[in-house]
């Protein structure tokens, strides 16, 4: 009697499955499991105590968590809309350029070439209340004689972070929308002009439907980005002062590493990921609707 031989497809897939299991599946299961335990990094044994949904119940009733959650959603909404508008404007300007368009395109992408950590440091310096460029400029222009506490006041600090985010990522929108504008056939625009459209109507009824899918791709990418915003905030304010700029992931990392409550942090992380998934699904729906509408062939 011959020994059992596993079928060839199974054998061939096995290496990939093993690698995936090692780097994705097992950590995922482990982290999900630990979110049901009171696991603390300082007490390894706590990993084996199951406490059911107590971590989830705790964060869902925690005002601090919800504040960070709400602030993240707010940052996401505001940043995406501002970036969208600025990116659209930039793209349309660059598209109009008859000369030096390639150079402009490259320059436009500069902010994307810097590490977010460095962007954080740069804006932290610029918004510094004593030696920052922003206060210096405002005072030199005579707009104020006070040192505005940009990174200390809660809403001002949120604004400062928003500015840094927008500065570093508007080009994502600009580049994608520019790609859309360049790919778009010119005749429908001319037809619209002859059909009696003002420049605004041409944009509203012809150009915009064309570039909408590109905007939604940018939205999808950026919503994931902002939902996991961490680096810029970590550098500029570290969620402070006194948690006034705490976002989901600064809160999660603080809980996990400073407070060493890994189980609780994992539970938060799963809720945060849920948020990301919701946004992604939402924008993907919008994207495919927009694509069908312009009968895109991609």
């Amino acid at each position: 009697m011959k020994g059992w031989r596993p079928p060839a497809p199974f054998l061939l897939l096995l290496p990939a499955v093993l690698v995936l299991a090692a780097v994705v599946i097992i950590p995922l299961i482990l982290s999900l499991y630990s979110s049901f335990t009171p696991f603390r990094l300082t007490q390894p044994a706590s990993l084996f105590t199951l406490i059911g949904f107590r971590n989830y119940v705790r964060i869902l009733t925690d005002i601090e968590f919800w504040t960070a959650f709400g602030r993240t959603v707010l940052l996401l909404t505001v940043a995406l809309n501002v970036e969208m508008l600025l990116g659209l404007g930039l793209a349309m300007l660059v598209e109009k350029a008859t000369r030096g368009q390639r150079l402009l395109r490259t320059i436009m992408m500069f902010p994307m070439m810097f590490s977010p950590i460095l962007v954080g440091f740069q804006f932290k310096f610029m918004f510094n209340d004593n030696i920052g460029l922003v206060n210096n400029a405002l005072q030199s222009l005579g707009l104020t004689d006070q040192a505005i506490p940009w990174l200390i006041d809660g809403s001002l600090a949120f604004f400062a972070i928003l500015v840094a985010e927008v500065w570093s990522s508007t080009s994502v929108f600009a580049i994608l929308i520019l790609a859309g504008l360049l790919a778009m056939p010119k005749e429908p625009i001319e037809a619209a002009r002859v059909d009696g459209c003002t420049p605004w109507q041409t944009f509203r009824y012809v150009t915009w439907p064309f570039i909408m899918p590109f905007a939604y791709i940018a939205m999808t990418i950026r919503s994931l980005d902002v939902a996991r915003a961490y680096d810029i905030v970590k550098i500029m304010t570290d969620g402070g002062p006194a948690k006034r700029t705490e976002l989901l992931w600064t809160l999660i990392s603080r809980t996990a590493y400073a407070d060493a409550r890994m189980g609780l942090a994992n539970a938060m992380a799963y809720v945060a990921i849920l948020l990301s998934i919701l946004f992604t699904v939402y924008f993907f729906r919008k994207l495919s609707a927009a694509r069908t509408q312009i009968a895109a062939e991609w």
Binding site: P188, E190, V194, A295
Partner: peptide, 18 residues
């Protein structure tokens, strides 16, 4: 163009695809 009251038929038809 909008003030000239013309209509134009293009080689590529230039229909609004959406």
């Amino acid at each position: 163009p909008r003030a000239r009251n013309l209509a134009m038929v293009f080689q590529s038809y230039a229909l609004y695809p959406h």
